[in-house]
Design a protein around this nucleic acid. Structure first.
Length: 862
DNA sequence: ACCGCCGGGTGCC
DNA sequence: ACCGCCGGGTGCC
């Protein structure tokens, strides 16, 4: 049996045992455990039972007083198929649960009736057996089954009030924050982040909740102790807000913190100059130096001083490095940094390397992407930086036994937008966990998207012992937090603080804002419809009002809510341009045949998805993933509604309208439908009031200053198409960016638009949802939002694409709103929709889930 | 294990 | 004695 680590996880033992595996790795074991470990949410404590661990003399695993132990079923054990193995936190086997007790527990464990957890309070020095306090946790409905089952076999589960047996209080007194070793907060925020990152990589302090006690290292949360130093977490989470320069800071990190705190060796002439500048360093006031570095880093890229300054930066940082790091801990053979990023921001990395690394600094950056990518391990590991995407990584790891990226010992692995890997079962996440690296980083503006659960994957990636193993995470953090245990929240907070740096746009460093963005002016421009437009609008509105009125009278608003959205959609289109209105193929009335019904449902699904409402699934409250529509015309994520149906006792009911639902009646959007969005409108082009309002603004701006660039944003791509005609007519040079474009084309378009060349485009037609976060459109200083979005956050995100770091001008945002129209009411209707949802839910799940997330976010200053 | 249990040796006091 | 008792060997699952 071969392992890559000195210590085995107990999952590893169990996995290896069960499958007789020959070369399981620790991460594979963790992966297996992750997919098997049920969520700790909502578990209740049934009670305690004193048990016995036997066979101590056969194993090396030792336990401390009060230490948590893991209990693992070993159904393939040749001596007893009921065997329950006991292991300590490092996965070293301690012994077995006594046969008779194991026989009683096996049934409960195998049928998931309860999770059994052990803590050893006494007898840790015993030679042959030791007592273990077992705690039974599970769903309320299984409480009696479990207690009765144990009782039948002569084991009385103590359900009494005294819970001291299974719990223990947490000591955090010796927790020292790691930030203390890095000094100069005089520096601007990126420098601060760089210092922090270097410190995280070089530090010798113990991971959170570990302390040294005499000769041993002790974890105060799990009461585990070990002779060996626990692995340091060399890395962390840089959770700065978008636009604060996570990319740039990471590039600076790569350049400045190579081995032993020295910078990346880039050029010979640099090291010759080093000695000269060292003497300057010593006698220069730190703050002066820092501002010099600042200037060099961000402005003057002409001077050779830049590279030297990087050396000096490292010198400053090295001052904070603890000299007690054992030399052997550094694996000097690892030299390359691997950056994994979503495809949409790949180009941004390349640009930033181009822009922020001096041209005569020879940094070897390789883009590992495309079918022609160089898969040679020798080649890849000789690079300074390799950039790739999550998809390429996971494709590589799936297809070939010898994924090149997995065969390299990386100096550093950086996950850009790291929250992407929050699902531990996803191929991508698994591929990321399998990477070998000395240091690990996660860059993410939003490390917690939905719940504390999201954090586990990140901690597992960082290999934060012992929380990279799901059981310890669940027992010590997740369950206490979901059950609103104060100590649990405090532990989580401490944990996150130790490995995360987070600043928002409004954060301050030494009393000065982190970023000084130019001012932003937002104004609403009311648009009056022309008389004929108004007539058409009123006609559609009355029709819609009748329909909705009927639903209200019948009490079927929820049942028909796809129709309601469709009506609002049509009104919104009226407000923009009459030609936006798509011909509705049929009235959505009664359907005679199943085929017809299916057609109608697909039509409704199309309307809901096209309504730009960023529809959220009422089950997971997230945006809809793999949309399906029920026969009662409500849209959910397929996995969410499938779960609702499978967990229903008898007949499953729609969470929104309580109609009966069945799995085989869920309708998906047919693939071929996606393609046929090409309504080529051969009719003659005509204008609209909103078009006129926009053109008026654009023409005025061009007169004032022809260098001004504008973003013109709409949710309707066909509206963008309509706008192309008058733009061309008036001789504006423009580009267009929408969701249908290939990545290559997008990059090209953004580059063109960002260019300051005299004949570069001055207008970008942008579809609201295109690109997602991370787009940099700072060349624009004016934003025209042609139509209001359901979700104001989407609008904000869009505005932030130009109101962000690098913006030199004051930003003007104009929102066009048609007077006396649905647009004015959209925000209100959005709120009502939310109220309806809450009523349908009886305001239980929704409320609790939402407030819980808020709690955590507030506590963690997220 | 300073136990329990097993199985062989042994057999009044 | 087809028993009781003694004392040695032995010991997770």
């Amino acid at each position: 049996m071969v392992t890559c680590c000195g210590c085995l996880s107990w999952q590893f033992l169990s996995v290896a045992y069960r499958y007789e595996a020959s070369a399981e790795t620790l991460s594979q074991a963790i992966r297996a455990a992750a997919s098997e470990e049920p969520d700790a949410d909502g578990s209740v404590l049934f009670g305690h039972l004193q048990g016995t661990v036997v066979g101590l003399r056969y194993y090396t695993g030792v336990v401390n007083q009060g230490e948590m132990v893991g209990l693992v079923r070993q159904p393939q054990n040749p001596y007893d198929r009921n065997a329950v193995m006991v292991a300590n936190i490092y996965g070293n086997q301690v012994g077995h649960i006594k046969r008779e007790l194991a026989a009683a527990m096996a049934y409960i464990m195998d049928n998931n009736l309860a999770k059994v957890e052990g803590v050893v309070h006494t007898g840790t020095k015993n030679k042959f057996t030791m007592p273990v306090m077992l705690a039974f946790w599970g769903k309320e409905e299984n409480r009696n089954v479990v207690i009765e089952h144990m009782a039948r076999r002569g084991y009385k589960v103590n359900t009494g009030g005294s819970t001291t047996a299974g719990r223990h209080t947490t000591r955090c007194s010796h927790m020292s924050l790691f930030l203390q070793s890095v000094g100069t907060p005089l520096l601007p925020h990126q420098k601060q982040a760089l210092s922090w990152m270097c410190a995280q990589e070089n530090k010798s302090a113990l991971p959170p909740f570990w302390e040294k006690r005499g000769e041993l290292y002790y974890n105060s949360l799990t009461c585990f102790s070990a002779k060996e130093v626990p692995d340091r977490v060399r890395g962390g989470i840089l959770a700065d807000d978008m636009g604060l320069g996570k990319t740039l800071t990471t590039i600076a990190l790569i350049l400045t913190n190579f081995h032993k705190g020295k910078p990346l060796p880039v050029e010979k002439c640099v090291s010759v100059l080093l000695n000269v500048y060292f003497s300057i360093t010593v006698c220069t006031v730190l703050s002066d130096l820092c501002s010099t570095i600042e200037r060099c880093l961000f402005m003057s890229r002409r001077s050779k001083i830049y590279a030297v300054m990087l050396m000096i930066v490292h010198f400053l940082i090295c001052a904070g490095v603890d000299s007690s790091i054992p030399e052997s801990a550094d694996d000097l053979s690892a030299t390359a940094t691997l950056i994994i990023s979503p495809l949409s921001v790949l180009s941004n990395w390349l640009e930033q390397f181009e822009q922020h690394v001096r041209a005569d600094v020879k940094l070897k950056v390789y883009l590992y992407y495309g079918s022609e990518r160089n898969r040679s391990k020798t080649f890849l590991s000789s690079q300074d930086v390799v950039i790739t995407t999550y998809n390429v990584l996971s494709a590589d790891s799936g297809v070939s036994e010898h994924s090149p990226l997995h065969g390299i010992n990386w100096l550093r692995v950086v996950l850009d937008e790291g929250h992407i890997i929050r699902n531990p079962n996803a191929q991508m996440s698994k591929a990321v966990l399998d990477l070998k690296a000395q240091r690990r980083w996660i860059l993410s503006g939003t490390p917690i998207q939905n719940s504390v659960k999201d954090l586990w994957m990140l901690l597992a990636f960082l290999r934060l012992k012992p929380f990279d193993v799901r059981e310890w995470w669940n027992r010590v953090i997740q369950r206490p937090v979901t059950q609103r245990d104060r100590a649990g929240l405090k532990n989580l907070q401490t944990l996150v603080k130790c490995i995360t740096l987070r600043r928002t746009k409004s954060s301050e460093v030494n009393g000065r804002p982190v970023v000084s963005l130019p001012e932003k002016m937002v104004c609403v421009e009311q648009v009056e419809l022309s008389q004929s437009e108004r007539e058409e609008y009123e006609l559609a509105r009355n029709e819609g009002r009748n329909t909705i009125g009927r639903y209200v009278a019948e009490g079927t608003v929820l049942r028909n809510y796809a129709d309601v959205l469709a009506i609002l959609m049509r009104l919104r289109q009226h407000c923009c341009h009459p030609d936006l209105l798509a011909k509705i193929s049929s009235d959505l009335g009664a359907a005679a045949t199943p085929a017809q019904l299916r057609e109608h449902l697909i039509e409704k699904l199309r309307l809901v998805l096209a309504s730009g409402s960023d529809e959220e699934c009422s089950v997971c409250l997230d945006s809809i993933h793999l949309p399906v529509i029920t026969h009662c015309a409500h849209v959910y994520c397929r996995p969410c509604i499938a779960q609702v149906i499978s967990t229903a006792q008898e007949t499953a009911r729609c969470p929104l309208c309580r109609s009966e639902i069945k799995t085989n009646e869920l309708v998906e959007f047919p693939q071929e439908e996606m393609e046929k969005e090409n309504h080529t409108n051969s009719e003659k082009w005509r204008t609209s009031s909103k078009v006129q309002a926009l053109m008026g603004n654009l023409l005025r701006l061009r007169c004032e200053d022809s260098s001004i660039k504008c973003l013109v944003v709409s949710q309707f791509t066909r509206f963008l198409t309509i706008l192309e005609t008058p733009l061309r007519e008036h001789g504006f040079s423009f580009v267009r960016l929408d969701g249908t474009m290939s990545q290559k084309r997008r990059t090209q378009v953004i580059q063109e638009f960002q260019s300051s060349a005299p004949n570069s485009p001055v207008i970008m037609l942008l579809s609201l949802k295109a690109g997602g976060v991370g787009l940099n459109l700072t060349a624009a200083s004016h934003v025209f939002l042609m139509d209001p979005a359901w979700n104001p956050a989407t609008e904000e995100q869009c505005i932030d694409r130009c109101h962000r770091l690098g913006q030199k001008r004051k930003v003007f945002v104009t929102k066009f709103i048609v007077k006396d129209s649905v647009e004015e009411n959209m925000v209100k209707i959005q709120k009502q929709k939310q109220d309806l949802l809450e009523k349908a839910f009886g305001s239980t799940n929704t409320d609790r889930k939402a407030s819980r997330i808020d709690d955590i976010k507030a506590l963690m200053e997220l």
